[in-house]
Design a binder for these strands. Sequence first.
DNA 1: ATAATATACAACCAAATGGTTGTGCGAATG
DNA 2: CATTCGCACAACCATTTGGTTGTATATTAT
Lengths: 115, 115
Amino acid sequence: MVVRMATMSDGDVDAIFHALADATRRDIVARVIEREQSVSSLAAAYAMSFAAVQKHVAVLERASLVVKQRRGREQIVHADPATLERARLLLERLETLWRHRAAAIDRVLAEDPET
Amino acid sequence: MVVRMATMSDGDVDAIFHALADATRRDIVARVIEREQSVSSLAAAYAMSFAAVQKHVAVLERASLVVKQRRGREQIVHADPATLERARLLLERLETLWRHRAAAIDRVLAEDPET
DNA sequence: ATAATATACAACCAAATGGTTGTGCGAATG
DNA sequence: CATTCGCACAACCATTTGGTTGTATATTAT
């Protein structure tokens, strides 16, 4: 199956990195990657109000890093690893840029040493 | 040469992702990767005040994504690709976690199908 | 039917963000 | 020396963030 990567708007990328810029949210992502779980089960893990955790999950959801799925009266939070990959690919692209630049510099230096 | 990766505090990671959560700042990183340049030469590229760009560079600097180096009256902004790599490695670790989980699920499913 | 549970959501607050303008100061140029 | 250039920094402002509490709603359990 081929999946076309939708072109990401700046806003999407902003949302992803912003969501990852908080230790609690990164921890939530790690937890739901290991095992999907309800919002309240997540909330139990942190020294803050339920509503605060709920908001963190909402931020992750807006960034498409997690998805919520209702099950009875619970809301189960799943990871969406595709979004993580998108973010990683962006960083990889920047690193590639760097390697190309470094290679270009090397070429120039090798070309005409001490002329 | 062996480089020991200093353990990153949550705050460091927060700073890196926060710095990347803005299109202007990501663009600045890309530009200085391609060619290091002065703050004012960067500022010329954006439709905002010099001070605003200066602040963006400061955010990137706090995150160690760029380094400034004085040259005469100019301040030359360089990329620090090591920090980019750190961020990428973090995302990779999360993705690895996911792959392990997926593998564990596969194992369970294969173990006892339809008992 | 009542109570308890899981979530949603609004209102509120302090602090941080992302922008502005203005002021000052060291370095280069005329 | 006077001026201009590149930058730093402070003050200010609107908006967003990350937390709180309180209220409402739907679902399960007694």
